[in-house]
Amino acid sequence: MNPTLGHLLQQEIPLTWYLLLSAVLFCLGVLGFLIKRNLITVFMSIELMLNAVNLSFVTFAHQWHEVKGQIFVFFVMMVAAAEAAVGLAIIIAVFRARATLAVDRIDLMKL
């Protein structure tokens, strides 16, 4: 085997970095939730947070050499898919009733 390639293949990085990336992504998601003014973008921020959490799941699964962490991610994806479907349907309904997607205008807590 090519020693350079072998060296490259043997290069390893600490899992801490992945976790840090996950934390930063999560906080960006929260931040997005707080500053975005469009309902759809706010919803995307939620997806971002979910993905950040998924990353940390996968990282820990790697750390413990455990399959269950990945299965958790699998379930989160399923739930996220269902949530996205329902959430977007709600957004459509809200838009139909209010004719706006601005979060600050949708503060009656009803359709």
């Binding site: 929260v30 939730f33 707080l34 706010v42 979060v103 949708i106 503060d107 009656l108 807590m109």
Partner: peptide, 13 residues
């Protein structure tokens, strides 16, 4: 209880 989604999110945070 403003009904404003973002202030709720802030409190949650």
């Amino acid at each position: 209880q403003s009904g404003n989604l973002r202030s709720y999110a802030a409190w949650l945070a």
